[in-house]
Design a protein around this nucleic acid. Structure first.
Length: 274
DNA sequence: CAGAATACCTGCGGGC
DNA sequence: TGCCCGCAGGTATTCT
């Protein structure tokens, strides 16, 4: 589910409800997520006040005076703001309880994670330390991508999804950005021109921004903090449309496996070049 | 060492 | 109806 726009949507949804709120209780129903929820979480966070809510890559960073909660939604995680009396459902693994609301983490596949870091050590946290650029930052541009490509012998879709290089782009937005930039997903990075990298970087930014405006993409189960879907799915031009006509040229969209993942593209708009 | 494959989970749709 | 298979938006870890 969640790529950068979905995590950003979640962040914007929860922040106003939890900022400056004191944590009155913490409930862990299932601590076997991708990594176990730290056993000391209650000791570290009880009665602390939320001072900040940030996003880095696909990680949500919920800060208190001393400790930051690092949350990753994995493939199927959602965070919702709920009234305290709302009954739990299957896969509701974790609650942060405030004065009159609670923040509830639900994650059927349990690929998500909830971890802690001391504020002063946050930047050194192993999960955050080696992350690449934020795609919406000024530093992320065609020149940067081109520069990264010179050291690599991979295909362009892998480069886009490599979070050591640029963060937040998953299978959906990689496919969409490559279509927008008219680049064949399995192109070796060394055959692409600087001009193509420029267009690709611009496409990434445009698509992510639009997706954030629409509240993210809901294919199956993404929900924002109010339990509502995002509306970018109906703007997807290639993802999930294999066998249907290209919205640009009417050629039949094809799919192939790149990096173990299904990848849809237009054979005419994104021609194979070698 | 870079790049590719694997593993971690549950749920769902399709085929039989 | 029900069982089995394959696949799903992520990414650290293990393999080659």
């Amino acid at each position: 589910m969640p790529e950068l726009p979905e995590v950003e949507t979640t962040k914007r949804g929860i922040a106003p409800h939890i900022m400056q709120q004191r944590i009155e209780n913490i409930i862990v129903r299932q601590n076997q997520l991708r990594w176990p929820i730290p056993t000391e979480i209650k000791k570290k966070l009880l009665n602390e006040t939320i001072t900040d809510v940030e996003r880095r890559a696909k990680y949500l960073l919920i800060k208190t005076t001393k400790t930051t909660i690092i949350i990753h939604l994995g493939m199927s995680g959602t965070l919702r703001i709920l009234e305290k009396q709302v009954k739990t459902k299957k896969h509701d693994h974790f609650d942060l309880v405030f004065a009159d609301k609670l923040l509830r983490f639900n994650d059927p596949r349990r690929f998500g994670s909830i971890l802690l870091a001391k504020n002063e050590e946050l930047n050194q946290h192993p999960l955050l330390l080696h992350l690449g650029l934020e795609p919406l930052s000024k530093e992320f541009n065609g020149q940067y991508l081109w520069h990264c490509a010179q050291k690599k012998r991979v295909v362009i879709k892998s480069l886009l999804m490599d979070h050591h290089i640029v963060v937040g782009i998953g299978n959906i937005y990689a496919a969409e950005a490559l279509f927008a930039a008219r680049i064949y997903p399995a192109s070796a990075v060394n055959v692409l021109t600087l001009q193509q990298f420029n267009l690709l970087a611009r496409s990434v930014k445009t698509i992510l921004k639009k997706a954030i405006e629409k509240g993210g993409t809901t294919l199956k189960d993404f929900m924002n903090s109010e339990g509502k879907p995002g509306y970018f799915a109906n703007q997807l031009k290639v993802y999930g449309r294999a066998g249907l006509p290209c919205l640009n040229c009417k050629a039949i969209l094809q799919s192939m496996i790149v990096n173990q993942r299904n990848t849809v593209f237009c054979p005419k708009c994104q021609p194979f070049i070698r």
